[in-house]
Amino acid sequence: MEFDLSWVLLGLPLAFVLGWLASRLDLRQIRLENRQAPKAYFKGLNYLLNEQQDQAIDAFIEAVQNDPDTSELHFALGNLFRRRGEYERAVRVHQHLLSRADISPADRHRAQHALALDFLKAGLLDHAETALLKLEGTPFEAQARLALLANYERSRDWPQAAQMAEKLAHAGQGSFAPRLAHYLCEQAATQVAQGHLEAALQLLQSAITKAPEAARARLDLAQLLIRMGQEVMAWNALMQALDSAPSATPLIARPLAELALRCGNGAATLARLQQLYAEHASLDVLEAIVTLSGADPAGQTSARDWYARHLEKEPSLVAATRWIAGEKLEHEQFHPQVQRALDHAVQPLLRYRCAACGFEASKHFWQCPGCQTWDSYPARRVEEL
């Protein structure tokens, strides 16, 4: 049977025409899909820019339905749900991404990290810990460890927090020595509450070794030694704290003055505080000096004189109020009312303010109750900032 070349010659143009038609149909379909998906996507972006999150979510859902394989749309949708507080929907979006076998390893790690953030925002700390631990060895490892550290601090799991801080320090994420000292102090406080004073003593000594320049461990140690009846050792601990943590002098001054009077070390303590006050004037150091001067029979400087000296150094409503308290006014019958008004006016000035978030409190905190930042409270009062 002879092969007829005429059929080949006729078939080639036909095949070419059919191929061209098929390609045109495919191109039209692709163009149609591309027009539909970006239209919904850009519509969602426009709603976001106008802060219309409900409409943005609807637009992104439409875009995902048109192209369910687009992972970026899923991430955008999940992040929107999380920002709105719809954590269950955010979790479902990210879990759906993780269940897909066709996403890249990078997107899988990203989805795992997003899922962990969903759990954290929802307050599901156990689920968040499990999700974060799966990010070890991924590009999100450092972020996951920081989140785990915050998670352990939030749940007051101080041993676990210490282990995570050590890992971060070894990975070159900075120095965590002051924070590790805080963890030891927190554990010591628990031991004191349970009556295990020796165990607390060992923890505080470890904290001082971990961060010698930190003031909290020495202050807590002094309180513990007082409780154990070792007041002279407590006084020594506070005197050492003045040298190792000079920035915390205002926090140390008052308990040191009270302890010095009980130990009979008032003169030495007064001389040291006067030296520090001359270098850096402070309201708390001033009050400690006034306390010690009032207990010294040979003292030549009265409390009112010390307040007047402070006013010469810098304007202070607090010092002025203290000075007026000992002054005899021309209309003395109105003195109690005036003094009460001044005392009320200076109360906000005697607070401490977080340098990170501005949260104010009547007492000094080592960790801000507002933003959970460590060592964000300066030792000085609001009036001195």
Results as ranks from 00 to 15, higher is better:
A298S: 05
Y377Q: 07
N46E: 12
A295M: 12
M233K: 14
Q274K: 08
I252R: 00
G174D: 04
T269H: 03
S6M: 13
I226E: 13
Y277G: 02
W366F: 05
S376D: 04
Q347D: 15
L311W: 08
E360Y: 13
L98H: 11
A131R: 00
H344I: 04
A63S: 09
G11K: 03
E312P: 12
H182R: 15
E198I: 13
L48I: 14
R304C: 08
Y41F: 13
W374H: 11
E166V: 12
L117D: 01
P297Q: 12
D157Q: 14
E384N: 06
H74S: 11
G44M: 02
V93S: 03
T138A: 06
E72Q: 14
Q223A: 14
L27E: 14
P13L: 02
L97G: 00
F3S: 07
V318N: 02
G358I: 02
A15C: 11
K43A: 15
G370P: 03
V382R: 10
Y47A: 14
H335Q: 13
Y183T: 02
M233H: 13
R216C: 04
A325N: 06
L25T: 07
H74M: 06
A162V: 05
Q194F: 11
Y352H: 05
L197N: 13
R84T: 01
A237Q: 12
A245R: 00
Q65M: 06
L148E: 09
Q347P: 15
L201R: 14
A101Y: 00
Q173S: 10
W158R: 01
G19A: 10
E72F: 09
Q337H: 12
S99I: 05
Q143Y: 03
T269G: 04
R145Y: 04
L133P: 04
W235E: 07
I289V: 09
R351P: 05
A267C: 06
A37K: 14
A257W: 03
T269K: 11
E51P: 02
R100E: 03
L133T: 12
A211G: 05
E136Q: 07
A281E: 02
A361C: 09
R84F: 00
R154H: 11
E330M: 12
L12A: 11
G264N: 08
L273F: 04
V318D: 09
D220F: 08
Q194A: 14
L97H: 14
V285Y: 00
A281P: 07
E384I: 01
A162L: 10
S282D: 10
P246I: 06
E141S: 11
P369D: 09
H170G: 07
L219E: 03
F140Q: 12
A150V: 08
